[in-house]
Design a protein around this nucleic acid. Structure first.
Lengths: 151, 151
DNA sequence: TCATAATTTAGAATAATTCTAAACTGTTGA
DNA sequence: TCAACAGTTTAGAATTATTCTAAATTATGA
């Protein structure tokens, strides 16, 4: 493979450096060992803006690009990223798990017919009068899902 | 089996009549043929107030009482009841489906640690500023789930 | 460079749910 | 009352999403 004279990096690696660097920093930042598969997945996930993926969809995508990662690793990685606060799990479907790269406080439209999620910015919807939970319980999070249909 | 003289009903059937009648009426009211298993399930579900069940939990319950209904039928029935508007499906867990006998507009506490749902009356929580959905879509329903943890 | 612990992976296992095709039952019309 | 038919139930197989297992691989620090 062609190299930038004197750098020790391939041209592609040089081009990827910033992205790769960002992914690397992200992983290091939360104490996850930067393995090839975690870096590859992080780059795809965080490359351009907010995304919603399922394990299957991410695995398909990664595979189509020619990267070799097992489905088990995709599952592991999604869960580790979630625990590390890099992703947020969104429950809208009793059949499969969605993961959102936007971890800020926000809500979702869910188009059930296509399994598509659309972000609603955090400041938009106002939820008031959430009752005090029963004795011994504390509110962890308030999720709002606006289910939409084709009209 | 002992009979009430002259009635043509067993004592048990006589006692069950009102309940049974209610379940029967419910099924007839939505055009579902009143089979033995549908009547049994309806009686359990709607006997005393609001309930949250999963297919498994309902099947266990029905079995414990000595009623013979297959798990497949429990699934079928839950879906038919939902379609008929007798039940409402609640999505709070990416692993299993909950069904709620309360079909009025209301929301839920969800105790993730135990898989327990608690109703929040419909007038309690106020959701405002729900944005207009993207072109071609219309709001079907707004779901609020208050996730709680033991404190 | 090596040893070690963390990670990945193929494939088996599990869990929830749906499907299939055969047996059964509620309803209807004669 | 009863036969016939459509609707329903069911056991068990199949499917789907996910997790587990144990062996192979890899990142890291000395």
């Amino acid at each position: 493979m062609a190299r930038e004279p004197g750098t020790g990096f391939t041209r592609q690696a040089a081009k990827d450096a910033p992205r790769h660097g960002a992914a690397l920093a992200r992983l290091k930042g939360c104490g996850l060992r930067p393995t090839r598969q975690r870096l590859d997945l992080a780059r795809l996930l965080f490359r351009d803006g907010d995304r919603h993926v399922t394990a299957e969809s991410l695995h398909d995508e990664v595979s189509r690009v020619g990267i070799k990662v097992s489905l088990a690793t995709v599952y592991n990685t999604l869960h580790q990223f979630t625990e590390a606060g890099l992703l947020r799990q969104v429950v809208v479907d009793a059949g499969r798990s969605y993961f959102d790269t936007n971890v800020d406080d926000h809500q979702h439209f869910f188009l059930e017919e296509d399994g598509v999620l659309i972000d609603i910015p955090g400041e938009t919807i106002e939820v008031s009068n959430v009752p005090v939970p029963p004795e011994g319980l504390a509110v962890d999070r308030v999720d709002v899902v606006v289910r939409v249909k084709r009209s």
